[in-house]
Amino acid sequence: MTTENALAVQGLTKSFGGFALRDVTLTLPTGYVMGFVGPNGAGKTTTIKCLLGMLRIDGGTVEVLGRRVDAGAPGPADDVGVVLDRPYYVSDWRLDDVESALRPFYSRWDGDRWSSLLDRFELDRRRKVKDLSRGMGMKLMVAAALSHDARLLVLDEPTSGLDPAARDELLTILSEFLEDEQHSVLFSTHITTDLERIADYVTFIRDGAIVSTGTKDDLLDAYRVVRGGPQDAPPPGTPGFVSTRRHGSGFEALARAEAVRDLPDGVVVEPASLDDIVIHVGRASDGAFDHAEGSL
């Protein structure tokens, strides 16, 4: 079944353990990668749990691959693969046990594909889950997700704790997965360099609310990093300046692109990276960013 959107979340609200998601709205068109970024505790995992039907939502709608998600209700398991920061299987299982456990739940489970993926990832099927390194654990979850022909991969901090080589390998695997234009990825992370490489869309979340959501290129085009001497630092509240960090030899700020046109000579204006944006947004006071979809 082809759907226009892999994910469509509209006005999602959820209060959970002293934390609240507030009016979360995001859309991931089919065939694309969305980076889902925000500081720790921003609401990324809570949002993902709502997508997976693990949390009962208080309001709004959640659609995954065109189907409304209803917590605890049956749904098609095949279409969505989930990769977390650590395996969610029984730690005493051997990798063969993982296949035995998962296979009955997936109508499209492909044992040959599972075997070939384990071989490719050099995962020994006699090893226990608890004996896998972080990188191997991540590969195990990816192997499981790709063995049931998932159309949407949901990744929640899959690269945290991984060395650069393992991170690079995951991104290569994802690139291969995305060769099929019906495949989509939601990639939650705080390591934004991963997203620079593969994300088409980026959604920022902070304090349970979406700060911005849109294409990565629009986001990068919308902001600039500004550096200068102490005398050039913008006064607090300068329109278009998201946050300013002052230090002994000057300042560094993140500003909207339209706000840096008439700056004094000597001030350096550079393109912003996702990392710059995440850091500055994390520091910015509430209200410095627009809280609306498509506000970039």
Partner: peptide
């Protein structure tokens, strides 16, 4: 082992 996540992913 956090198997509730597994049950969630298996729907």
């Amino acid at each position: 082992d956090g198997l509730s996540v597994l049950y969630g992913t298996l729907r």
